[in-house]
Design a binder for these strands. Structure first.
Lengths: 194, 194, 194, 194
DNA sequence: TATGAATGAGATTTCATTCAT
DNA sequence: GATGAATGAAATCTCATTCAT
């Protein structure tokens, strides 16, 4: 929550995560050193090692905390019927999850090469594919599968590329969601009137 | 014939670029060391510095060489009328350029955080925005602007995320292009029958 | 008493400064590598970087420590009346300061080109000019100003060139001081009988 | 042959020496790389090696060319009677030699640590001591010997420290010479009236 | 809960030098 | 007279990590 006025006790772990995520998102994972993180927190590097086993562990812990909503979403989705309504709802919830953990997702988007080799790499891949599986039909033609992927990436892009476009972030998110829903709708019911 | 036995003289510069791009795309820019590149070429690190001023310079030179087609495409596009046909043609050509320089674009997609801070960062941003400008109308509603961004990202994704989908790469590329065209078409003529 | 068997903990910083100064004076700044310093101390190079930010920083820290007496001397001098007695006293004290920090001054004398570009360069220049200002009259004829500079350099030389002359160092220092005093005396009172 | 006209061709050797000396004096010997010299001359590093065997050799050759007058001066001095007139004349000629080869002497003054280890190191030491021998009496008291050294250093300083003093260089040189003569005069005839 | 001190590995870069052409 | 290509050695510096206290 509060980013500047932290009471000095008991929440160092959280503060490390906050600062680390901020720096990771700003500069990239490899270009952010533990020294920087420690300095910004006014602790020593060794203190980081009291709370986390490795540098990677810091990132993993952040990911695990912020990723839970998406995980839950997939679990929920798997119990629902594959109707268009369900798919739309999934997109809606996913869009909100993205918005809530924007820095993390921005980081993941911009550091794919890094993240791929880390232990979360597989998890992430699984998650994206799991999400796609919920909104696409396995036997759909290739074009429809592309539409589903595209829907997801559209929402990701909604947080990134659209930085350079004017307008309120929340509105941009909604516009991206709208386009995503449209894409999935077409994929879901190819015979719908165009 | 032989892909491993390189002719030893005269083309070192090119060979450095080739090996570097391969490794950059495979492992990421920061995790690829000059030692690795040199070893794979059976030259000393110092030889790299005879041909390039810095590590960054290697990447920049690769980028400048492979980026030319896209640059040309933008210049061409700026002289054309903003018809739907032009836009479609731009997408088609861009898709082909992407396919031809796949490793570079894959690298750029997966190393955005790195590339952003390099001297090519601004160039790339300019280029993407220049491309988007050719296919979107400046006064179009936000949703249509998203569609245009989405079209571009769909083609990028066509080279990346779709790795995990079965099927021939060329077919996947065409499917991505088709979806992109569709998105731009809708953005171009919002009143078209759906 | 042992000069080679150093107590291993707690005073590393000081030991680095000692060894560094010795090597800097012996071989010059640029020709002394951090590897050498580290090896002579039986520490790793990285340890040096724990205590000092850069190679230059090692030198700067040495300089700042040993320069204090001279700095104090200038401050003291500025509060005194510009009598011949004051000037003589300044020369006397300066001569002693030089003797006490002989290796540093020898280093500075022999590495002027290097020191000039370092961050201490300006400080040193300031200090020498500050010192000269205390012993020369601003409106004195050029010849008298030269005498004052010469007085200072005579004492510097007393530590250097006179190495190749026979005799006890302490006696040489006193002889140099005597000549310096004589020069300043003449500059102070040009009409004095010769 | 004998004439000193310098057309743009065929005098590369001389041009190398000129540029090298300028850079050596400006930045110091170690901090000046052959790359810099070559670039400033618009030739390749390898070209330098056609004309000189090593980097040191460039410096040595410069030194040998410019040092000749001083060498001659010493030889001449050795044939003269050790009168005060001779000594004065030596100082006068030396002062002129210094002025004529100012950059070289400035370089030597500021790079003593470097020069000491080079092959010219011994030569220089010899030369200074040879010069001193001409103006001091071997059995003179220590103070008088200091005066002689001081005379020499005063003239050196005349080219350096006096940079920061106002006034015409030629006048400053003459002032330095005057003080030097005075010092040697006293050393020569201690009983002279003061 | 943390720190102070240190390390081992490795990064990028620079340099003087060589040699076939 | 000079270049193009390359090398071997070394330099400065950074990093993630460890451990006794």
């Amino acid at each position: 929550m509060g980013s500047t006025s932290q009471p000095r006790r008991g929440n160092t772990r959280q503060r490390i995560q906050d600062v680390a995520l901020e720096l990771f998102a700003q500069q990239g994972y490899e270009k952010t050193s533990l020294r920087e993180i420690a300095e910004q927190l006014d602790v020593t590097k060794a203190a980081l090692y009291y709370h986390f086993k490795t540098k990677e562990d810091i990132l993993v812990s952040i990911f695990e905390d912020l990723n839970k909503p998406v995980e839950d979403l997939i679990i929920w989705g798997e119990t629902q019927p594959r109707t268009l309504e369900t798919k739309t709802e999934i997109l809606r919830r996913y869009s909100e999850a993205l918005a809530r953990s924007a820095p993390l997702f921005r980081f993941m988007q911009e550091n794919q090469a890094t993240v791929r080799d880390l232990s979360i790499g597989e998890t992430i891949k699984h998650r994206v594919l799991g999400l796609v599986d919920l909104i696409k039909d396995p036997d759909a033609p290739l074009t429809d599968q592309v539409r589903c992927f595209s829907a997801l990436f559209t929402m990701h892009a909604g947080m990134l590329a659209l930085k350079d476009v004017d307008g309120d972030p929340e509105e941009k998110r909604k516009a991206a969601l709208e386009v995503a829903v449209e894409l999935v709708t077409r994929a879901h019911d190819p015979d719908a009137p165009r």
